[in-house]
Computed example of a mutant assay.
Amino acid sequence: MDWVTGEYELFEVHEPTVHSIPFVYNSPHSGRCYPVSFLESSRLNAYEIRRSEDHFVDELFSSATEIGAPLLKANFPRAYLDVNREPYELDQRMFDGALPSYANIGSMRVAGGLGTVPRIVAENMDIYAHRLPVDEGIHRIESIYKPYHACLRKLVSRTHASFGMAVLIDCHSMPGNIRLTGSNIRPDIIIGDRYGTSASAEISRAALYLLEELGFTAVCNKPYAGGFITEHYGRPVRSLHALQIEVNRALYVDEKTLVKTAEFYAVQSALDTFMRQLAMFVSEYANDMAFAAE
């Protein structure tokens, strides 16, 4: 699929032949289909506007369907609409006309230019050459954000009903220059569980252990603990677990050209192994929980 196009499916669900494991995979930021009207309204060129993409993350986790889980992927770009935010985190400075009273105009994400309709892409680059009509921002939320989350909720609910539990893996990438605060450690992967509130400690620890066994430098919650999706869908007390996974882009893509490197397929293969091993662990974990409840 061409990354610049006028017509495309806003998002799509790749279903397994049989939904055999209690997982849902989600790639909300890897969309690379840019509406022509959006490109024409931007002050950025076709390369610059892609800086906030989670490059090829949908492909990194594409084997989810082979191991028995659905994969929801956005085709619209994050720069156009960010579904990993509250529905109405909006920056009044971006719009002509007053925002509705229920809009959250004071969040830290809005202040940083990264609301539901983003003002900037990475490196503090303003997207728009002019202000947007308020109706345009609201239209994106009503026509894309809400249907996307309705689809994600349906997948999670279906999984929970079928298996008695659900594990949502929210898949992302991060810039290659990320370091842990106060150190020179560059994590390969960061697992976010909202500091233990969106998933059980056992599942989070297993994810970290499995990634480290595969040779990745993996850490938890710092500097990414999980966004709106992880926080909103993770309810461990109800057997609804949500983990955010951030993969360092420098492992698999040239961040200057935004082209896959030769290492892409090795990273993809390692993540496939991770997904299979985590599914096995969760199966055993669910059996242990059921046994303990008897």
Rank of each mutant, 00 (worst) to 15 (best):
L168I: 10
M174Q: 08
W3E: 12
A111L: 07
G115C: 05
I190Q: 09
D96G: 10
K256T: 12
A218Y: 00
G106P: 00
T116E: 04
N26E: 11
E53C: 02
Q92A: 15
R158M: 10
N26V: 01
Y25D: 03
D193A: 07
N75S: 13
T181C: 10
I190Y: 06
S63G: 04
G6M: 05
P87L: 06
H130G: 14
E123R: 13
E142R: 11
H139W: 02
E7N: 15
G106A: 13
Y148T: 06
L152C: 03
E48S: 14
A207V: 10
G164Y: 00
E231V: 02
E9H: 13
R140F: 11
H14L: 14
H232V: 03
D2G: 14
Y34T: 05
G215C: 08
L243M: 06
N248P: 01
V24K: 08
Q277V: 07
H160L: 15
N75G: 07
I169F: 02
G182R: 11
L155N: 01
L278Q: 09
S62C: 10
P133S: 08
F61W: 14
A46W: 11
A98H: 03
A74N: 01
T159W: 07
V259P: 00
P28G: 05
N184G: 13
A150Q: 08
V4C: 08
H14F: 14
L90M: 12
Y195T: 08
T217R: 11
T273Q: 09
Y128C: 08
L90H: 01
A79F: 05
M280N: 12
I189V: 15
A250I: 09
H14R: 14
K146Y: 06
A262R: 14
R179Q: 14
S63M: 06
C220A: 13
A207S: 15
G227A: 11
R249F: 10
P236M: 08
Y34N: 04
N221Q: 02
I178L: 11
M280V: 14
Y102A: 02
V121S: 09
V110H: 03
L71I: 08
V83M: 04
Q92C: 02
L99V: 05
R153D: 13
A293I: 02
A225F: 10
D254I: 09
D96I: 10
L90G: 01
L258C: 01
L168T: 10
N124P: 00
S143D: 07
P87R: 10
S107G: 04
V134S: 06
Y80I: 03
Y224D: 03
